[in-house]
Write a protein that binds this DNA or RNA. Structure first.
Lengths: 160, 160
DNA sequence: ATATGTGCAAATTCTTTGCATTAGA
DNA sequence: TCTAATGCAAAGAATTTGCACATAT
């Protein structure tokens, strides 16, 4: 229980090895992406990742291609927050978690909670193999609730 | 336990009322969409819905607009099966369920199982209001597993 | 009567693809 | 060396928007 996450450095090194194991080359763009994903928090869109890289490391197209490759070998997981772009996060494998997204401010919080076991067990029971899942939770965060209450106080004619 | 789902007709009628309650008009395109969603199974893409409607009822654009309106008032739920388009299903409210999608044949099966309670309770505990979630499960269905085994038997040089 | 909803066309946005060039193993 | 990876430009696909016209309430 001391430290349940591997260090970012360890994850980064392991991820490069995973690339090699799958006969994929360890290139600058791939390292840059994995560097970010193993050291920073939120899941990122391809564009956000590209924006976070040092200028000129690679093209946005390459980011898309790298992420596709990484998803195939389960190095990253893809999330959908429902706003039209996909987001990617490092796949820690065992230590699975989910996000709760505020529908108002779009803030993201990580939930250290996962229903994977029961879910995937059930899927296997009905004959599925290689089971994975995506789960996102949406709500309105406490801060945005407060703002809403204030706004409602001002214009109280809209509450149907 | 006799019949836990409301009849399609009941759901349809109630959905029209929900439109009225929100001061939205009950139009032909909206009726056509709700007709399909309350009577047919799978979640559908905007294009699939449009294809299922009688010729000439409305434009595809209108389907998109109707679905957006309906999602806002929680008449429908949007699902993402990870293939680039969103799918919509009638939101039965209480009786929540999920899908398991075969990654190979893209078949969809409904799971009469939901983790909503524990999830949403947890989200509320940490201060979120108006909590919802999306959950999709992916796997390889038994039929596709069988085919894969056969294929592997033929070309057994590719297993890394 | 009139604001809301719709059709058509065109724009936007995200993501993918083709092909010549570069660079890891 | 030699195949996999990348850059650039352009295509593709899903969804959204603008504006004139139609239609529920």
């Amino acid at each position: 229980m001391a430290h349940k996450h591997a260090s970012a450095q360890t994850q980064f090194d392991a991820s490069l090895q995973t690339l090699r194991d799958h006969r994929h080359r360890v290139t600058e763009p791939r390292k840059a992406i994995l560097e970010i994903l193993t050291s920073e928090h939120g899941p990122f869109t391809a564009e956000e990742l590209h924006g976070r890289m040092k200028k000129g490391v690679c093209d946005l197209v390459t980011v898309y291609r790298c992420l596709a490759t990484m998803e195939e070998i389960a190095l990253v997981r893809r999330c959908d927050f429902g706003d039209g772009s996909y987001r990617y996060e490092f796949n820690t494998g065992e230590h699975h978690h989910h996000h709760i997204i505020c529908r108002v401010c779009h803030g993201v919080q990580t939930l250290d909670f996962c229903v994977a076991d029961s879910l995937e067990r059930m899927a296997r029971q009905i004959g599925y193999a290689n089971v994975t899942h995506t789960l996102e939770i949406f709500g309105v965060c406490s801060q945005c609730q407060r703002k809403k209450v204030l706004a409602a106080a001002h214009a109280e004619s809209e509450e149907d």
